[in-house]
Amino acid sequence: LETFPLDVLVNTAAEDLPRGVDPSRKENYLSDEDFKAVFGMTRSAFANLPLWKQQNLKKEKGLF
């Protein structure tokens, strides 16, 4: 999966995202380093959170 810089994904409308980016899964296009910096946890820890908590975190970080 291709990764993009944080500033390309945060608070970006679906139509302005790079081609192929799923707007409902912007976090998947962050590098592992950016993911950890944004969410303060690994991808696996994030995946283990309840869906509502994942969505709330994504909203807080501008990735929803």
Rank of each mutant, 00 (worst) to 15 (best):
P50S: 08
F4P: 02
R19P: 15
A47E: 12
M41R: 01
Q55S: 09
E33R: 09
A37N: 13
K36N: 14
K58H: 01
N56F: 12
S31V: 03
L63D: 03
L51H: 13
V10L: 14
N48P: 01
L57I: 10
N56A: 14
K58F: 05
V21E: 03
K61P: 00
L57W: 04
F4R: 02
D7R: 08
L17V: 06
E33L: 10
L6Y: 15
L1A: 13
L57H: 04
K59T: 09
E33Q: 11
E60H: 07
G20F: 08
E27I: 04
F35D: 00
K61I: 07
V8I: 12
V38H: 05
T42M: 08
G20P: 06
L30N: 01
K58R: 07
N48C: 14
S31G: 06
F35M: 02
K53N: 10
L6R: 05
R25D: 03
S24N: 14
K61D: 00
A45L: 09
E2N: 10
F35Y: 02
A47V: 10
A37G: 09
D7V: 10
L17W: 06
L49V: 03
W52F: 09
E15H: 12
T12R: 09
S44G: 12
T42A: 10
A13L: 11
T3G: 05
W52D: 11
F35T: 00
A37F: 13
K61T: 08
K61V: 14
F4H: 07
P23F: 04
K26S: 04
P50R: 02
D16K: 10
D16H: 11
A45E: 14
A13T: 10
L51D: 11
G40R: 09
W52T: 09
V38Q: 03
L17A: 04
S24E: 14
Y29C: 05
N28I: 12
L9P: 02
F35P: 00
N28C: 14
D7G: 09
K26W: 05
D22Q: 04
K26R: 14
A14E: 14
T42Y: 05
F4K: 02
V10Q: 14
S24F: 13
N56C: 15
P5A: 06
K59W: 11
A47F: 12
F35Q: 00
F64I: 12
T3L: 08
G40W: 04
L63P: 02
S44V: 13
A47Y: 14
L57V: 05
D7E: 14
L63I: 07
A37R: 12
L51W: 12
T12Y: 07
D34Y: 01
N28S: 10
V10R: 13
D22A: 04
E33S: 12
P23N: 05
L6W: 08
K36F: 15
L17N: 04
F35E: 00
N11M: 08
P18H: 03
N11Q: 09
M41T: 04
P50C: 06
A13G: 09
A13V: 10
N56P: 00
D34K: 02
L17F: 07
D32W: 05
K53S: 11
K58Y: 04
L1G: 12
D7W: 15
S24P: 03
D34W: 04
E27Y: 02
G40V: 05
A45D: 13
R19A: 15
D34P: 00
D7I: 09
S24T: 15
T3H: 11
M41C: 06
E27T: 02
